[in-house]
Design a protein around this nucleic acid. Sequence first.
DNA 1: ATTGGTGCAAATCCTTTGCAATAGC
DNA 2: GCTATTGCAAAGGATTTGCACCAAT
Lengths: 153, 153
Amino acid sequence: MTSLQPHPTDQDLIALLRARGQRVTSQRLVILRELRRRRRHATAEEILEAVRPDLPGTSLPTVYATLDLLGELGLVRKLDVGVGVSLYDGRTEPHQHMVCRACGRVEDLDAELRARPLLRAATDAGFVPERAELVVHGLCAECAGTAPGPRAA
Amino acid sequence: MTSLQPHPTDQDLIALLRARGQRVTSQRLVILRELRRRRRHATAEEILEAVRPDLPGTSLPTVYATLDLLGELGLVRKLDVGVGVSLYDGRTEPHQHMVCRACGRVEDLDAELRARPLLRAATDAGFVPERAELVVHGLCAECAGTAPGPRAA
DNA sequence: ATTGGTGCAAATCCTTTGCAATAGC
DNA sequence: GCTATTGCAAAGGATTTGCACCAAT
């Protein structure tokens, strides 16, 4: 079972790349830093915009390739929740997601997922599980008009 | 919380459509029957191929529109598991899915998902949950070389 | 010096949209 | 007859691919 490093450092990335005989490039370092800096998942396009100042001339294909590589290294989680874009999540603590069917917003859901029985069932079927992801579909507070806080009354 | 009808009949669909003031078309009936007939999720394209004999001249946009409508009616579940295509699942009993990262295969996972705490957490955040979906990522038996049965030794 | 990575442009693929024709009601 | 649905063609948008150049080892 691949586990994500908590808050991976540049050195972590460098070590992982060296171990695979791959090169340490500024694109890889800067994109990892950007993921670390963010508290939220982001699209490849958003990552590109964010790193543009540090990496002028960087292209979307490179961002995709890099995110894909970081995914293999366990430094980022790719999310496909049915909103038409892939999201890349640098938050490494275990957490799940909620997707609003009205506005497409994707929010973090911090609650313990008891996946043990599911993983067990997968294993029994010959499947080798690496990670379990749960998505709650529904309406976000805003779209449902149940926004908590100020206007909760 | 929207719940899926178990093995919906033509009459179920007709009633649901009438209730919404929508028309009963052969495309809608035939596509629902095809979903009922299948035991597995399928792509829009696969559904189109399957219904072609009964509905010559049917087009992909119609299949998408119909699957979308059936989804709203709770007669089919749309799955987005990151394999690049949407899958439509007519299996209405609660079940989850396993996705092989090597070959992209999507298999059913029949094990109880204890989503109560997650849904509770979502509600606490003001979110109105409608359904929870869990996906186990990993390697299928074939790709991992752990195929059970005959060659399990 | 090698060759893996990158940037650019173009291709690919799934899904949606616009609009005239058709079929439910 | 009225208008939602359909079929067709075309558009849209995310991601991938091919290839020449560049930079990490």
